[in-house]
């Protein structure tokens, strides 16, 4: 019987060993191979690609842009997604379910279709977003959204917003409403309740949502490719270019492996910090 769990999971284990671990190891090895315009990929072990990625200012700027976009997307989703989850949680029966469906539903709608929607809304100086902003008096001249970081951040914030709402929503479900009532009974105003009672308790939810959103934003592909265009490169679109246009696979592999490595370090580091800080909440 002791072999039973291993036998049961053997098919999936073999599949993952063959189709996940082997390809990932091959990609890491690929990043050490040489490449030339005419000779193609040469299976040797050199550090050329890594030196290029780590020392060339072009790559520094690109990675810096990638993480800057991811940071602002995370900030936007936290600032707007967390209050919305709280409002949603206080709604009454039919509305609560309906709006949860409306807000989480886009998660399952094709990211290409959603990004196309933003491309249509931004659409140059005559785009609907600019018309709306000008008519409310917030701005006087149209803002450029297409092919800019601002546009990529807004569209990505929309694409990843459901993850933040979901994480905060899950934290809110664990909240005991009696604590809020107790605070009110003891004379706390609504703002004090929010700041002193609700926020500290949902903070782990916001932070875990932020980690997910950051990781997904830093590795997003379709949205930066469509909104950012060919000139505003992030790590994933650059790797795509190296693989399918320039055909310098070893260099593309180095970019991808570095992105994976950076994300693993950031995600694990951040999760450790959150867990240590909120050990009493998780424990």
């Amino acid at each position: 019987m002791r072999a039973a769990p291993y036998l049961l999971s053997l098919p999936a284990l073999l599949l993952f060993a063959g189709v996940v671990i082997v390809p990932l190891v091959m990609t890491v090895l690929l990043s050490f191979h040489d490449w030339g315009q005419y000779k193609g990929i040469e299976p040797v072990f050199i550090l050329k690609n890594w030196q290029e990625v780590l020392s060339d200012s072009y790559f520094h700027e690109m990675f810096w842009r990638t993480f800057r976009i991811a940071f602002f997307v995370t900030l936007l989703t936290a600032v707007f997604g967390a209050p919305e989850a709280y409002i949603l949680n206080r709604m009454k029966s039919p509305w609560r379910g309906l709006f949860l469906l409306v807000i989480l539903g886009p998660l399952l709608i094709s990211v290409v279709a959603r990004t196309l929607g933003w491309a249509l809304l931004f659409g140059g100086s005559s785009g609907l977003v600019n018309k709306a902003l000008i008519s409310t008096g917030l701005i006087s001249t149209p803002l450029p959204f297409m092919f800019t970081e601002t546009g990529v951040v807004v569209a990505l914030a929309h694409v990843l917003m459901p993850y933040m709402v979901m994480a905060v929503w899950a934290a809110l479900q664990r909240l005991d409403p009696q604590i809020e009532n107790a605070a009110v009974a003891l004379g706390a105003g609504p703002f004090t309740v929010l700041r002193r009672i609700v926020l500290p308790q949902v903070m782990p939810g916001i932070l875990s949502g932020a980690i997910i959103v950051f990781a997904l934003a830093a590795s997003a592909f379709a949205t930066p490719a469509i909104i950012g265009g060919r000139r505003l490169k992030v790590a994933s679109t650059l790797a795509y270019d190296e693989f399918l246009n320039t055909l310098n696979w070893p260099l593309g592999a180095a970019v991808a492996v570095l992105l994976l490595f950076a994300l693993v370090v950031i995600v694990i580091g951040a999760s450790r910090l959150v867990e240590r800080r909120y050990a009493q909440v998780f424990g």
């Binding site: 996940v20 990932l24 990609t27 830093a218 590795s219 991808a256």
Partner: peptide, 8 residues
């Protein structure tokens, strides 16, 4: 990241 899986 799916871009890394795609490359692999």
């Amino acid at each position: 990241p799916h871009v890394v899986l795609g490359i692999a």
